[in-house]
Measured scan of single mutants.
Amino acid sequence: MDVFMKGLSKAKEGVVAAAEKTKQGVAEAAGKTKEGVLYVGSKTKEGVVHGVATVAEKTKEQVTNVGGAVVTGVTAVAQKTVEGAGSIAAATGFVKKDQLGKNEEGAPQEGILEDMPVDPDNEAYEMPSEEGYQDYEPEA
């Protein structure tokens, strides 16, 4: 019985440690998101679009440190934060509304985080759909 109880105690310690790591990862992701939003706020009209992409990228980098179902929630929060940063930029006159959601080359930025393969159960990952990809044929 002692062996059984000791095993359960060790398992509990492992769960607590994993929860603490997840909590730490979420806190880091939130900190990076805040950094990115402050970065966007300090940019001029020309830099705002690039700044919004930076927020998304920093958040995406930190999301990889967070495991399990938390990833889905962090990704949703990050996307809403990026959308909010863009709205703030438009409201303050840093950028025109028609410039939001495009990178410096004018290509749409939507789907940055949505296409990231995420499995809350950590069982399997699927690649994003290939609808947006084109076949590449090298020139002879």
Score class of each variant (00 low, 15 high):
V16P: 00
A91G: 05
D119V: 05
L113G: 11
A11T: 03
V118L: 09
S42I: 12
E114S: 07
E13K: 04
D98M: 06
Y39K: 06
A29N: 01
G7P: 01
A17M: 13
P108S: 07
Q109T: 11
K80P: 02
P138A: 09
G132A: 09
Q79S: 07
V37P: 00
V52R: 01
M1G: 00
E46A: 04
V63I: 09
D119F: 03
E110M: 08
V74S: 02
G7F: 07
L38T: 05
K34C: 06
G51P: 01
A11K: 00
T54S: 04
M127S: 04
V3G: 01
F94E: 02
A11W: 15
K21D: 00
M5A: 03
Q99I: 12
A85W: 14
F94Q: 05
K34A: 09
E105R: 11
A140L: 11
S87F: 04
A76Y: 15
E137D: 11
S42P: 01
S42A: 15
T81M: 12
E20F: 13
E28S: 10
V82F: 13
T54N: 06
E61G: 04
G101N: 02
T44I: 15
T22G: 05
V16L: 11
K34T: 02
T92A: 07
A17R: 07
T64C: 11
K21G: 00
Q79K: 13
T81W: 05
D115G: 15
E61T: 03
A19S: 02
V48P: 00
K45P: 02
G41E: 01
V63R: 03
F94R: 01
K102Q: 01
A124Y: 14
T64H: 12
P138T: 08
E83C: 04
P120F: 07
S42W: 14
G93C: 04
L38C: 08
A30V: 13
E131I: 12
A89E: 03
A107L: 10
K10E: 01
E104S: 09
V3Y: 02
T22R: 01
E139V: 10
K21F: 15
V49K: 13
V52W: 13
K12G: 03
K60H: 05
M1Q: 00
V3Q: 03
T64E: 08
T33G: 04
K6D: 03
A140W: 14
E139C: 03
D135G: 07
A19W: 15
Q134R: 14
V3L: 06
P108T: 11
T59M: 02
T44C: 15
A89P: 03
Y136V: 08
E110H: 03
A76P: 02
K32A: 12
L38W: 05
K6P: 00
K10S: 04
N103S: 07
K43D: 00
G51L: 11
T92K: 02
N122W: 06
A140Q: 07
Y136H: 10
V70N: 01
A124K: 15
A107Q: 05
G31Q: 15
V74P: 01
T59D: 00
D135L: 11
E20N: 09
V16A: 06
L38A: 04
G106Q: 06
G106H: 11
V3E: 00
T75L: 14
A76M: 06
E57A: 08
K21H: 04
E126A: 14
E110I: 05
E20H: 13
Y136T: 04
D119Y: 02
I112K: 07
L100R: 08
E13C: 04
M127I: 12
E35K: 08
G132L: 06
E126Y: 09
V82A: 11
V77A: 07
G67D: 01
G73R: 07
A30Y: 15
Q24T: 12
E20V: 03
G51M: 14
N65E: 08
T22Q: 00
K58C: 08
A19H: 05
V118N: 11
E46D: 14
N103V: 13
V82D: 02
A29M: 12
K6M: 06
L100F: 02
A19P: 00
Q99L: 13
K96S: 08
A27M: 14
A17W: 14
V49Y: 14
D115Y: 13
A89S: 05
E20R: 02
G25Y: 14
A69I: 07
M1H: 00
M1D: 00
V71R: 09
V37I: 05
V70Q: 01
V52E: 00
Y125Q: 12
V16C: 12
A140F: 14
G86I: 13
M5I: 00
K32T: 02
K97G: 11
Y133A: 06
E83Q: 10
G7Y: 06
A90D: 06
G68Q: 05
E126H: 12
A27Q: 15
G36T: 15
E131A: 11
K21M: 14
E83G: 04
E28Y: 04
G14I: 15
V26Q: 00
G73Y: 08
A27E: 02
D98N: 10
E110V: 10
Y136P: 07
K43S: 02
A29L: 07
G86D: 04
P108W: 07
M116E: 10
E20L: 14
K58R: 13
E137H: 10
K80E: 02
V55H: 01
T22M: 08
V48G: 01
P120T: 08
V26L: 08
A76K: 15
V52G: 01
T75Y: 14
E57L: 10
D135K: 05
A30K: 02
E139Y: 11
M5L: 00
A29V: 11
G73Q: 13
V15E: 00
Y136F: 15
N122D: 10
T33R: 01
V37T: 01
L113C: 03
E126M: 13
G51Y: 08
V26E: 00
G67R: 12
K96F: 13
V37M: 08
T44S: 10
E83P: 06
Y133D: 10
V74H: 01
V37N: 00
V118C: 12
A107K: 10
S42G: 06
T72Q: 10
H50F: 15
E83H: 11
K96W: 15
M127G: 04
T44Y: 10
G86S: 11
T72D: 09
A29R: 02
T59N: 01
E13T: 07
D98R: 11
L100H: 03
Q24H: 15
T44D: 00
